[in-house]
Amino acid sequence: MWEAMEQMGWVKTLSSTGWMYASVSVIHYLTMFWFIGSMAVVDLRVMGVAARKRNLTELSAQIFPWAWTGMILALISGFFMFLTDAGDWAPDPVFHVKLGMIVLSIVFAIWVQRGAPKWGALAEIPTSAKVIAAIALLLWILTILSASEIPAMEGLG
């Protein structure tokens, strides 16, 4: 099934046309940096080490819509990159780790976004919230690490 996806007409065009594949890669990197960085700032704010003068509720409401926009673009461009070599990517165990990390990271990002208005309204941000934000940030770093390990360990990408 995965090989069949690789053989679809437009996927073959994408993988064999240099500027097309490069453009998708650029979109993937740009949007990935964009959304991880902006989410990281909110996590750091919850942890009490960034933008301390700004109310958490305000910062979170300003940042998160951008972050989700970036993430959706990163997921779509990433899926296109996956398709060009789907037969090799699909069974790769390190790639599975990366996908698992992404899912976990998204769960924690939603947790932080939903918690932000409650935590921001309190006189002091609870320690439990800081732990959740720290895990959310760490999970994105582990996602990047698992992504970097794929070419290093498996020669893919």
């Binding site: 740009l30 990935m32 940096f33 964009w34 959304f35 991880i36 960085g37 902006s38 989410m39 990281a40 700032v41 940042i63 951008w66 994105w140 770093i141 990047i144 690490l145 970097s148 390990e149 070419p151 290093a152």
Partner: peptide
């Protein structure tokens, strides 16, 4: 070293996320 390159790339990419994420915002 086998493990150093991906970890160094991790440092570069983590920094890029914070740098570009805050620039683009």
């Amino acid at each position: 070293s086998l493990w150093a390159y991906p970890f160094t790339q991790l440092v570069h990419f983590t920094g890029l996320s914070i740098w570009l994420g805050t620039n683009l915002a």
